[in-house]
Amino acid sequence: MNHPAAPNLTVNDLAVGDDLPVMPKNATRAQLFLYSAASFNPHRIHYDRDYAQFEGHQDILVHGPLQGAWLTQYLTDWCGPKGRLTGVTWQNRASALPETDLEFRGKVTAVDSATGDVELEVWEQTADGQVLMPGTAKVRLPLG
């Protein structure tokens, strides 16, 4: 995946209510395996479909922390190199499955043009609009 050219976003470019651009994600089974390995996570529900179904899941599941890491990627990509992600929260409400189109979306909820601090409502949803992971974020952007 190509890293999108980060814009030179400043706090003056933003207003409450602005929408962030959508970031699509779709995890292969190989990616789930690699994330299990890179995060030292041997939980079987992420690589063994029979076991995941025994626990009542439809398929193997995308790790909650991988979806959280995608959320931080969504925000740091949007902020650009001079922006800083200062806080994030997320709730894993419903399971995300591999080989499924997912979307990260966000909206500006507060802007402080004196400090550059911006607050956001962010979430991960399926292509048909089911919210899997709601959250919030704080970033600090360069002053305009």
Partner: peptide, 16 residues
């Protein structure tokens, strides 16, 4: 290497 392996596993190829 561990940090970069993690970045690749996330699919987050930020140049930093």
């Amino acid at each position: 290497r561990e940090a970069q392996r993690y970045a690749h596993a996330v699919g987050d190829l930020n140049p930093i």
